[in-house]
Design a protein around this nucleic acid. Structure first.
Length: 320
DNA sequence: AGCGGGACCTGTGGGC
DNA sequence: TGCCCACAGGTCCCGC
């Protein structure tokens, strides 16, 4: 379920507890969870070890952890030299796709991996002078002393249904990751003109909204909610929708996404934010999950159909 | 070209 | 209580 607002909420929650932390080591519990050119268990584990987290961001439904780059870090250079040319140089971050049931939680250092833990990262709080410019004189002994007193924590990637993945990337490898290169623009940043242009395809409106190449980050929940809000039938072909209605949809989509982010996302079954808290936007659903109930606007019973491969709930009276 | 359907998964919940 | 099965859904892929 994590769609744009949920992933955004997770990123915001993780950011303060991850930035500046160093990955002490990682354990891959499910071999298929890492993808891409550094997917093999021991390669993945070696490749993330020693990285310092620079930032946590979102792109579409992807949650991205950026690492500090090696040329800013003498320590990195030494570590990569020690590893030799094992093909793990140049890595700039890792991208998580949570799919339906993926979760990213931070825990204290004593937490144990459990049934659904797919990858676990042990983290060390590296806050200290050795990471400031011109302070590379820190000795190994000082480093060890700091490590022993600094706080440790863990980041777990849990995923009951195992559809989720994590992928290490370098600047170069991103160019060859087609999902990344073909990802459409962010719905919260797209202009009205670009949005209308992109939504004028031959396919049905729901299929267009769900297509990550056209716009990134919209899933079943927010597609249904935005279409209801704009009064558009999910099966209407994009090129048959008048521009005025596409303009309304652009505003409706942004409004529903922003409101959901403000309420920390929607919690249906699995979804929890980085602190294990449920979101509240599910209380604002007007069509999603309301099959058979009446339309909040006209009291007509809501219709349910399989559209673009998804269960779709809509109002036949309000959406045309 | 676009759409439907299958595959990938497992926890949940309704029906009996 | 317990069993069976449909269902949930993001993405890719295949075939019509």
């Amino acid at each position: 379920m994590p769609e744009l607002p949920e992933v955004e909420t997770i990123a915001r929650g993780l950011r303060p507890s991850l930035i500046g932390r160093k990955i002490i080591d990682a354990t891959v519990y499910l071999a298929k969870t890492p993808e891409g050119e550094w997917a093999e268990k021991s390669t993945f584990e070696a490749a993330v070890t020693g990285r310092v987290i620079k930032d946590v961001r979102r792109r579409g439904k992807l949650l991205i952890i950026y690492f500090q780059e090696k040329y800013f870090q003498e320590e990195y250079f030494q570590e990569e030299q020690r590893r030799g040319s094992s093909g793990v140089t140049g890595i700039t971050g890792m991208a998580f796709h949570l799919k339906m049931t993926g979760r990213l939680f931070t825990y204290d250092e004593h937490a144990q991996a459990h049934k659904h833990t797919r990858v676990a990262f042990r983290l060390q709080n590296t806050a200290g002078p050795q990471f400031h410019d011109g302070a590379r004189g820190t000795t190994e002994a000082q480093g060890k002393e700091q490590a022993s007193v600094s706080e440790q924590s863990q980041l777990f990637f849990d995923d009951a249904r195992t559809f989720g993945y994590v992928r290490l990337f370098s600047r170069e490898s991103l160019k060859h990751w087609s999902f990344w290169t073909q990802l459409g623009p962010e719905p919260l940043g797209i202009s009205v003109d670009d949005f209308c242009h992109r939504m004028q395809g031959r396919r049905g409106m729901k299929a267009l909204l769900l297509d990550q190449h056209i716009i990134a980050g919209v899933g079943n929940i927010y597609a249904d909610e935005a279409l209801f809000s704009a009064g558009i039938h999910p099966n209407t072909k994009g090129h048959d929708v008048p521009r005025a209605k596409l303009v309304r949809l652009h505003a409706a989509l942004q409004a529903v996404l922003l409101q959901s982010i403000a309420e920390c996302g929607s919690s249906i079954r699995d979804y929890r934010d980085a602190h294990g808290n449920a979101g509240a936007f599910q209380n604002n659903f007007r069509v999603y999950g309301r099959s058979g109930q009446t339309c909040v606007a006209c009291q007509t019973p809501l219709a349910t159909a399989k559209i673009a491969g998804r269960t779709t709930v809509f109002c036949e009276h309000c959406q045309r």
